[in-house]
C-alpha cells in the first residue's frame, strides 16, 4: 500500500466580507498518496485556489487539519511553515514562476541551495532533469529568453529537484497553447509517477485531466465529486474536448 503524502481532514476556510461569512472551503477531506497525480477542478470561485494556498502552507485554515508527510500544518509557527515549504513542497504558479535574473539551471539549483543540498551529484541530477524536460539547450538562458512553455518546464524541474513530498501546480497551462499545455502536463505527470511524489494540479482546462489518476471536483467550496476510475476520468477529460 502506498504512503499517504497529503491528508486533508474536515478543512474549513471562511472569510468575512461586508459582514457576511463566506465559506471558501467547506468541510473538505481527501488524501493523496505518494506517486499519485490528482487534478483539482471546478468553476471560478469554487475554492480550489484557496484550498491550494492552504495546502502550500501560505494560508491558515479556519478549522480542520492538513498533514503533509505526517506533519500537521496547524501546529506549526511561521518559521516551521517556511521550512516545510522549502523541504516538503514543490510549487509552480500560473506565471512569474521563475527568478528573472537566474538562468534555467540556476533557478532549479536555487531549490538545492535553499535546502543546503547543492553538490556535484545534485548538479548533474538538475541538468538531467532539465534535459528530460527538453531544456538541455536552455540551461544558460534567462527566463526572458525562453518561451512560456519552457519557463513552465523549468518551474516543474524546480518543483521536483529537491524531492518534495507534495508538488502543487496552480494553473500551469494557463498561458500556454494547447500543444504546449499537453506536453507540460504529460511530462509533469510522468515525473510525478516516476519519482513517487504526490502531485496536485489546479486547472480550468478539463482536457488536462486525462493525465491524472484522480479528479477532485469542487463547487461552492465543497468537494462535490471524486472520479477515480481511469475510464471515467478519460470520459470526463474527453467530454471537455468535444
Amino acid at each position: 500500500m502506498s504512503n499517504i503524502a497529503l491528508e486533508v481532514r474536515d478543512l474549513v476556510k471562511s472569510f468575512s466580507l461586508d459582514g457576511a461569512t463566506i465559506q471558501a472551503v467547506d468541510n473538505v477531506s481527501f488524501q493523496v498518496r505518494s506517486g499519485e497525480f490528482v487534478a483539482l477542478v471546478g468553476p471560478s470561485g469554487s475554492g480550489k485556489t484557496t484550498l491550494l494556498s492552504i495546502l502550500a502552507a501560505l494560508l491558515s485554515p479556519t478549522s480542520g487539519q492538513v498533514l503533509i508527510d505526517g506533519q500537521d500544518l496547524a501546529k506549526m509557527n511561521e518559521r516551521e511553515r517556511v521550512k516545510l515549504r522549502r523541504e516538503k513542497i514543490g510549487f509552480t504558479f500560473q506565471s512569474n514562476n521563475l527568478i528573472p535574473f537566474l538562468t534555467a539551471r540556476e533557478n532549479v539549483e536555487y531549490m538545492l541551495r535553499l535546502n543546503g543540498a547543492l553538490n556535484h551529484g545534485s548538479r548533474i541530477r538538475s541538468d538531467e532533469l532539465l534535459a528530460r524536460l527538453g531544456l538541455a539547450e536552455r540551461l544558460h538562458n534567462l527566463p526572458a529568453q525562453m518561451s512560456g512553455g519552457q519557463q513552465q518546464r523549468v518551474a516543474i524541474a524546480r518543483a521536483l529537484i529537491h524531492n518534495p513530498a507534495v508538488v502543487l501546480a496552480d494553473e500551469p497551462t494557463a498561458s500556454l497553447d494547447t500543444e504546449r499545455a499537453f506536453q507540460v502536463v504529460e511530462t509533469f505527470a510522468n515525473l510525478i509517477h516516476e519519482n513517487g511524489r504526490a502531485g496536485i494540479i489546479v486547472t480550468h482546462d478539463l482536457r488536462m485531466c486525462q493525465f491524472v489518476d484522480r479528479v477532485l471536483q469542487m463547487r461552492d467550496g465543497k468537494l462535490v465529486r471524486i472520479i477515480e476510475d481511469k475510464n471515467e476520468i478519460l470520459e470526463f477529460a474527453g467530454a471537455a474536448v468535444h
Binding site: 502550500a56 517556511v82 515549504r85 522549502r86 510549487f91 512569474n96 527568478i99 535553499l114 524546480r158
Partner: peptide, 14 residues
C-alpha cells in the same frame, strides 16, 4: 513584488 512572492513561497525566509 511577484519575484519576492515566489522566493518566499518556495521557502526563502523573510
Amino acid at each position: 513584488v511577484p519575484q519576492i512572492g515566489v522566493l518566499k513561497a518556495i521557502g526563502s525566509s523573510n
